[in-house]
Design a protein around this nucleic acid. Structure first.
Lengths: 155, 155
DNA sequence: TATTGTTATACTCTATAACTATA
DNA sequence: TATAGTTATAGAGTATAACAATA
């Protein structure tokens, strides 16, 4: 492993001066850096970041159909099939045919699902706090508020 | 095309209340929304956002080898091959064997490359300004500074 | 006819391994 | 031995089309 050994991997690059003014670059690499921290933090748990988000949305909207969860998360319903499959295989959620509309699968969290949501959610939160550590608390809060403001009206 | 016709596509979802506090969600969807606007803005030009970023980095660091450009952008060198291929096919860049070290390809912009950089860069900038329109100018500047602050020290 | 979940398929982005030519 | 570029390949993530069951 010589001097330039890391050159083969992407890693997190030092932002090049030509791109530090480009929001697209900043957003992409902020997202990648946080995703990396989060992935490491979630390693002990049976979910990745996307699956944790599914658990979060399901817990906040029970009982919800697969399609409702998919819409909330902004993923395709065909993608949701695989996500629910994985969560069900881990015993974190269960599918039930909706009594009123038997085309629908209502998805509910199991006890293990709720437990994982809390513990993995805490781990992901800790990763986020580490990521935001260079900022003051008000700056960190402003960042979130600003991102939300820019996301909301775009549609 | 009925009421729920758009339900099949992801689109930009209304942020679910359970996730608006999660930075990972906010960053991801901000990035996706901006990427969508940028892609539409670049449609008339022979480059996408990634290729425009390559042109930008190359223009700021001529003469640069493929590997140097790859490191600056944070992409793998195997990925850079395809990016340069596409730019070369469009006549926007040229590869030259480095006189001093013939393993290296020095990549330079053509006239067309410089022209595309300026015009497509302006289009992408306009997309960014539209994306940031909900924010005051100081808020927009603060957003960029904050993202940079959080990206830089992570390595 | 339309909708939910599903499967099969394909496309993009990215990374790893192995090859070549040069050093 | 090591490095720059390349190729082949594989893995995520995502989307489209088509099908079965149900409405």
């Amino acid at each position: 492993m010589s001097t330039a050994a890391r050159g083969d991997q992407a890693g997190r690059p030092v932002p090049p001066a030509e791109l530090t003014g480009h929001l697209a670059y900043l957003l992409k690499h902020a997202q990648l850096a946080l995703a990396e921290l989060t992935a490491a933090a979630l390693e002990p748990y049976p979910v990745n970041g996307r699956e944790l988000a599914v658990l979060t949305v399901l817990a906040g909207n029970e009982p919800a159909s697969q399609q409702q969860a998919a819409q909330r998360l902004g993923v395709d319903r065909t993608t949701m099939v695989g996500l629910i499959d994985a969560l069900e295989d881990e015993g974190l959620v269960r599918r039930h045919a909706d009594a009123g509309d038997r085309r629908r699968n209502v998805v509910t969290l199991t006890e293990a699902g709720r437990d994982t949501l809390h513990r993995a959610g805490e781990a992901a939160g800790a990763a986020e706090r580490r990521f935001l550590a260079p900022l003051s608390t008000p700056d960190a809060q402003r960042l979130k508020a600003t991102l939300l403001a820019v996301i909301e009206p775009q549609r």
